[in-house]
Amino acid sequence: ELSQDQQTLLTYVLDAYNKHRIPSDISKKLLQEQYSREENFLLLTEMATSHVQVLVEFTKNIPAGFQTLDHEDQIALLKGSAVEAMFLRSAQSFTKKLPHGHTEMLEERIRKSGISEEFIVPMFNFYKSIRELQMMQEEHALLTAITILSPDRPYIRDQQAVEQLQEAMLEVLRKVCKLKHPQEPQHFARLLGRLTELRTLHHHHAEMLESWRMSDHKFNPLLCEIWDVQ
């Protein structure tokens, strides 16, 4: 069973995850904007920017002590996890079948935005693998917090403090998996396997940015900072 503290932690993380999401006016644009490659690229960068803002707000609300870390480490954790948290959140959009055909529109726009096929394939394989896990909202929220609190990101100074925060989240996730998927003892291990997949996507993403830069696509200052693009 979850202890009282763990139940409180889970409630906080779930509330923070549900409260902070892409504003509907941006996702509505998926249906309205033109269909040109340029328009798709701009729309995707607008969604990515919103993902970063949502990520920061979610992270500030993680109760287990993210705010106790020093600011440099908080920034290093956000920079190190932003791409992975974005893919995880996007995967959920493809799982939940957004209303009014948003999902199909989003897929179309991603496929027609200048991203080369070699990155499209692993991206949609990842979305499919997340869909197959039929994750509950609690699992998405915890897995996102676990992704953010990865002690092995570049430039983390107090790795031990981050590791303790991540351990607490992993223990709650392990119990939630046992409670919610009693018939699937492997479910927790499968979720952790997705974290490994996210690292690979993170690597692909850096190469994607390079190819976009070559075709002279510009990113706004927040994306340049979070993605380390000059």
Binding site: K19, V52, V56, K60, N61, H71, I75, L78, E225, I226
Partner: peptide
């Protein structure tokens, strides 16, 4: 060095 936008977002009061 450019002021960090990320730091600004982090230091802003929650849910701003």
């Amino acid at each position: 060095e450019e002021p960090s936008l990320l730091k600004k977002l982090l230091l802003a009061p929650p849910n701003s």
